[in-house]
Structures are given as C-alpha cells and as structure tokens.
C-alpha cells in the first residue's frame, strides 16, 4: 500500500514537473506576445521524433541526442517567428488570424513528421537504460531547468525586462529596450524547452504525432489552473495536475487523463475562479 502511494507520488512528480516545464515554455511566448502559440505542440513533436531518430535509429548517446533535440526546435521556433508571426503582426493581423496561422503551421509540421516517420507510436530504446532511471533523469532535469528559470525571472535584469514586457510591451519599447531581440530570445527559449521536454519524455515513454498536442492541452490547463500571468502559477498548476493524473491512471487507466484534466479545470472554476495563485481575470 505504502509502496503504491510512493509510486503514485513519484509518477505524479515526474509528469507534473514535465507539464510544468512545458507550461513554462509555452507561457514564455503566450504571456508576452499573447499569440495562441499552438505550434508549440508541433515543436514538441519535432523534438521528440528527432530524439528518437538519433538515439534509437542512429545510436547516438543520450547527451548528444538530447542536445540536438533541444537545439533544433529552438531554431525552428525562432525561424517560424521570423517568417510567420512577425510579418503577420507587422501587417496588422488580428488575434484570431495569428491563432489560425499557428494552427496551420502545427498541421504542416505534424503531418510532415508523420509523412517522414510514419504515424505509428515510437517506443523508447531499452538500451538507454531501464525506464526507472529515465524517469529519474527526467525529474531531475525538469526540476533544475524550472528552478533556474524561476531564479532568472525573479532576480536578474533579464527577468525584470521579461516581466515588464509581459505587463506592458509598448512601454518597454519606449524605454529603449529592444523588443526584437527579447522576443527572439523568448521564442528560442520556448522552442528549446519544448524540445528538451519532449526528448526527456520520449526517452521514458516514446512519442507519437499528436503527443505534443495532448501535452500542450495539459500545459494550458496548468496555466489556467495556476492562475495565468505568473510563471510560478504555471508550475504550481502543472505539479497539481500531474499528481492528480498519476493517481487517476492507477485507479481508472491512462485513456481518461484528458477528460480528467478538463473535469479539474471545470471544478477549479467553480471553487477557485481566480486559479490556484489567484491572479486570473474573470469575465464579469
């Protein structure tokens, strides 16, 4: 009994920290540019597949596979911002139009992947170690990356600019701080986090074309549950959701995870309309 509880808790921490990391990566772009950046889900998938291809297909070692799987989505994210979002914003595209464009890019990337790699699920190689070490590795890296980010945003000048950017992007421009580079860095970091997180998770569980979309939905719910606007809120929401999910997986099976997440979202709205950290704005 006690072992089971510990198992649930550990699994919860692993998936919770993974959700939190993805939520962090998404919120870097979402809370500053306000673009509903669903392409993030496809960047995640690209990182996961690249990792799988390198580590299982090409027998690369774990570290270099992870490194390349982080680097590629980061560059892709930056590239997409430069050739899609930026010109669209410059020609005055509205919120909905950016959203639809993002959906379009997501479809292109996901189906390019499934065209090249096939749409069957890719399983992790057992040669890279048993699943348990893979899980611990994921947990440790997640926690390190999240902590570093929380420290950066709360203590450094870069973090201060980031928060100011989120609160009032135009003001920052007037203060002479360059939005262009800051936004570029944000897209780069966000894509990198997507890839890193996907690589770690593929190492543990494998990947299929729409895994990224599922992860994305969970991350968005975590952002809402945590109370939008603050990175620490997204992290709290992710941990909460992850632990709850791993409990439900033991009780009912993994096919109900997404339905559960939505039930959580709805119940949270009933009892705590402002989110866990109490900053979300609600419709009057």
């Amino acid at each position: 009994m006690q072992e089971l509880l510990i198992q649930i808790l550990i699994n919860g921490l692993v998936s919770g920290s993974a959700i939190a990391l993805v939520a962090l990566g998404f919120s870097l772009v979402y809370h500053t540019t306000r673009i509903f950046h669903i392409t993030f889900a496809a960047l995640y998938a690209s990182g996961g597949y690249l990792f799988w291809y390198l580590s299982v297909g090409q027998q690369f070692d774990l570290a270099s596979s992870l490194f390349i799987a982080t680097l590629f989505p980061a560059l892709l994210s930056l590239f997409l911002w430069l050739i899609i979002y930026k010109p669209l914003t410059n020609s005055g595209a509205e919120h909905n139009e950016l959203m639809v464009a993002s959906v379009g890019i997501m479809m292109i990337i996901i189906y390019l992947i499934s065209l090249i790699m096939g749409d069957d699920p890719k399983l992790p190689s057992s040669a890279l170690g048993k699943t348990l070490p893979a899980r611990y590795l994921q947990l440790i890296v997640n926690i390190i990356v999240i902590t570093v980010f929380l420290l950066i945003t709360s203590t450094t000048r870069f973090g201060l600019r980031l928060r100011a950017f989120r609160d009032n992007p135009r003001l920052l421009g007037r203060l002479g701080i360059n939005n262009f580079y800051l936004t570029g860095i944000l897209f780069l970091l966000s894509g990198g986090i997507a890839g890193l997180s996907a690589g770690l998770s593929t190492n543990d569980l494998g990947i299929s074309p729409f895994t990224g979309v599922h992860v994305f939905i969970n991350a968005f719910i975590a952002v809402v549950a945590g109370g939008s606007g603050r990175i620490s809120g997204a992290v709290a929401g992710g941990l909460f959701l992850g632990i709850l999910q791993s409990a439900v997986v033991f009780l009912a099976g993994s096919e109900w995870i997404l339905s559960l997440s939505f039930a959580v979202l709805i119940i949270l709205m009933l009892v705590k309309p402002d989110g866990l950290t109490g900053l979300a704005r609600r419709e009057a």
Partner: peptide
Amino acid sequence: SLRQIIFGAVLVGLMFFISWRR
C-alpha cells in the same frame, strides 16, 4: 498526410492574404 499539409498551408497563406488585404 499530404492533404493535411496542404490544408495547413492553405490556412497560413489565407491569413497572410487576409491581413495583407486589410
């Protein structure tokens, strides 16, 4: 897969066209 890629590209292209026209 190709069909979905085409639809995705159509969506992106359309958004460029709409905002450019406006």
